[in-house]
Design a protein around this nucleic acid. Structure first.
Length: 430
RNA sequence: GCGGCUAUAGUUCAGUGGCAGAACGCCGCUCUGUGGCAGCGGAUGUCGUGGGUUCGAACCCCACUAGCCGCCCCA
């Protein structure tokens, strides 16, 4: 029989790596809490329509990367809903925002999530079919200040703090403004006009993009097309006064907070819902990501709620690729080593097993991390196991059982001492 | 979805048509309550899967699967 394996693009996360995952998630929770974010958990699958309308019918994600299936209908023979494993989480959060009438509180909502997302892409390092995102969204009615540039800057400053707290080295923030929902169509029109006469000079990929998604031509790396691209209209020239002022305010607030950034006029993002501020945090080559150097991305989505049939609720959010963040931390810090237990109890002989387990129970209740050996092991084997797993080893033989005084070996100091059972917890803590 | 590279022991890898290998790790013994060193011994395994060529295939051919790299795209 063929051996069963995790399906393509999915993987198991095992100790000791999971400790790093927990550390990253705990750090995110701690940092986000300081900025007033609360956790939201949305379903892992939603109606397909949500993503089609929210993310955009024409995007690669929706047009070819979703895991979609037809659910069973209620009655025999009736067809069910089309459902989809979530390829991203912003649409789900906004759906929940609308469904639970959060707008009616009149308050700004600050929500974060941590969870798996699914996209059927060709797997690669830093790109999996089930991958984890840590994200956050700030949204609310306009009068809650949700469209304020202060929120953009706050989110970016929070991300800088988060990455610094984790010890990510060399990150770079790139940002741009893609304009409001009225600027963007005007710019797209101008872009199409400018591309029309020169389109035949572009490479095949860019010719296709010029048709389907002209913004994408801008971030093409095709060397032969750079001259044409450089002469295309700039989004900055098509921003109205309000959008320009908004972007200027974001930059001013980042300057005030000392968050370094680089403006990248070519930074466009693939999801249809982005408006005005868009951004990306990248890490340098050699950070374990190959060409997938984008650690996280995000932006403002002032019209998303309305696109989903909700009230006007401007917002800004981001998604961190947790898998990529972990790869970066591992590459920058070296291999993770398992944290050692406080003690290993080595019973000398099976006769001491029961007592050894009772001792382990006592120590564990006191909050110590403890492993128990088996009395049938030779002492040498116990030493080997103990040294790998724990900082200290407790020898429990006939003498110790009778006297109540235990032998404690400290591997770091190389010392061996006799400790009375009543003082054991204290001695092991030291 | 497209192109390239790769797949052999737990791990890292060698092996280009003739007995399946090394290092590290693992287990045992020397050594029944004091390890890490050393000596000796042992097991490593469907050579990714399936087919084909051949007297004979880890090796050559085909298909499939998976991983990696690049493209597309994105976190």
């Amino acid at each position: 029989m063929a051996t069963l394996k995790a399906v393509r693009g999915t993987r198991d996360l095992l100790p000791p790596d999971t400790a790093l995952w927990n550390h990253v998630e705990a750090t995110a929770r701690a940092v986000f809490a300081r900025y007033g974010f609360g956790e939201i958990r949305t379903p892992i699958f939603e109606e397909t329509t949500l993503f089609a309308r929210g993310v955009g019918e024409e995007t690669d994600i929706v047009s070819k990367e979703m895991y979609t299936w037809e659910d069973r209908g209620r009655a025999e023979g009736s067809s069910g809903q089309s459902l989809t494993l979530r390829p991203e989480n912003t649409a789900g959060v906004v759906r929940a925002y609308i469904e639970h009438k959060m707008a009616d509180t009149g308050m700004l909502q600050k929500l974060f999530y941590i969870g798996p997302q699914f996209r059927r892409e060709r797997p690669q390092r830093g790109r999996y079919r089930q991958f984890w995102q840590i994200g956050a969204e700030v949204l609310g009615p306009a009068w809650s200040g949700s469209d304020s540039a202060l929120r953009d800057a706050e989110v970016l400053e929070m991300l800088a703090t988060f990455l610094n707290e984790l010890g990510v080295k060399g990150w770079k923030l790139e940002l741009n403004s893609v304009g409001s929902s009225t600027d963007r169509p005007r710019y797209l029109e101008a872009l199409r006009e400018a591309l029309a006469p020169v389109k035949h000079l572009l490479c095949e990929d860019n010719q296709r993009r010029a048709e389907t998604n002209p913004l994408r031509v801008l971030d093409s790396k095709e060397p032969g097309d750079q001259e044409i691209i450089n002469n295309l209209p700039k989004i900055a020239d098509y921003l109205d006064d309000a959008s320009k002022e908004h972007f200027a305010q974001v930059l001013a607030a980042l300057d005030a907070c000392g968050v370094p950034y680089a403006i990248n006029p070519r930074l466009v993002r693939g999801l249809d819902y982005y408006t005005r501020t868009t951004f990306e945090f990248t890490v340098p080559d050699g950070s374990g990501l190959g060409t997938q150097n984008a650690l996280l991305g995000g932006g403002r989505y002032d019209g998303l709620s309305e696109m989903l049939g909700g009230p006007k609720a401007p917002g800004i959010g981001f998604a961190i690729g947790e898998d990529r963040l972990i790869l970066t931390l591992q590459a920058q810090a070296g291999e993770a080593t398992a944290k050692k237990l406080d003690a290993f109890i080595a019973p000398m002989g099976v006769a001491q097993n029961a007592l050894a387990l009772a001792l382990a129970q006592e120590l564990r209740r006191a909050g110590l991390s403890v492993e128990v050996g088996d009395g049938s092991f030779r002492l040498k084997k116990s030493f080997d196991a103990a040294d790998k797993l724990a900082r200290q080893m407790i020898i429990l033989g006939e003498d110790e059982a009778a006297s109540g005084v235990l032998t404690v070996k400290n591997f770091n100091k190389g010392e061996q001492t006799k400790v009375a059972r009543a003082e054991l917890v204290e001695a092991l803590r030291g």
